[in-house]
Amino acid sequence: MIKTRKSLAFAAALVALVAGGSAATAAASTTGGRGAVATSDAGRGTPQPRVIRATQDARVAPLDPPSAFGHATVLEGPALGPDGQLYFVDFTAPAGKPKILRYDLRTKAVKPLYTDATSRFSSLQFSPADGKIYVTDYDHGKIDRLNPDGTGFTTVFSGPVDGRSMVPDDIAFNKAGDMYITDYQGSLKKPDGRVVRLDADGSNPIVLQDGLSDPNGISFTPDFSGLWVGEYNLGRENYFTLAPDGKSFTGGGVGMSANVGTAGFDSNTVDSAGNVYQVVLGAGKILVWNRTGDLIATIAIPQKPKPELLVSNLVIKPGTAHGYITVGGDNGGYIYKFRALAPGIPQSNGGGA
Rank of each mutant, 00 (worst) to 15 (best):
P47L: 06
A68K: 11
G293E: 08
K142V: 01
Y180P: 03
A129M: 02
K304C: 00
R5T: 14
L113W: 12
F10T: 00
A340R: 03
G131D: 05
V195Q: 05
D178T: 08
S67D: 10
G323N: 04
G211M: 03
V196M: 06
I335V: 14
N238T: 04
A24N: 09
S158V: 13
N238F: 14
Q209A: 14
V280K: 07
T118D: 11
R44H: 15
T292G: 00
I345S: 00
A172C: 05
T55S: 12
I100T: 10
A23C: 15
I286R: 05
I171W: 07
T73I: 04
S187P: 13
N290G: 04
T30W: 12
S213E: 09
G274P: 13
A283T: 08
I299M: 03
L80H: 07
L80Y: 09
F338K: 10
R59K: 15
P98T: 04
L86N: 01
P148Q: 06
M1C: 04
V110T: 15
V254C: 00
Y239R: 10
G131H: 13
K111C: 01
T182I: 03
K97G: 00
D266L: 05
L295I: 09
L146F: 12
P346A: 01
R106P: 03
Q347N: 14
G81H: 11
A72V: 12
D41G: 05
Y114M: 01
S203W: 15
T39G: 04
F249A: 03
G77W: 06
H322Q: 15
G20Q: 04
V207W: 15
G81A: 11
N147Y: 12
K247M: 03
G186H: 05
V37Y: 15
L17W: 14
G328E: 05
S158E: 15
Y324K: 01
T107S: 02
F240H: 12
A9Q: 12
D90W: 08
G32T: 08
V60C: 03
V207N: 09
I2N: 07
L8N: 07
G351A: 01
D266C: 07
G21P: 10
R164W: 13
P65Y: 12
V195L: 08
T292K: 05
A342D: 07
T39P: 08
G32S: 12
K337D: 06
G253A: 02
G226P: 09
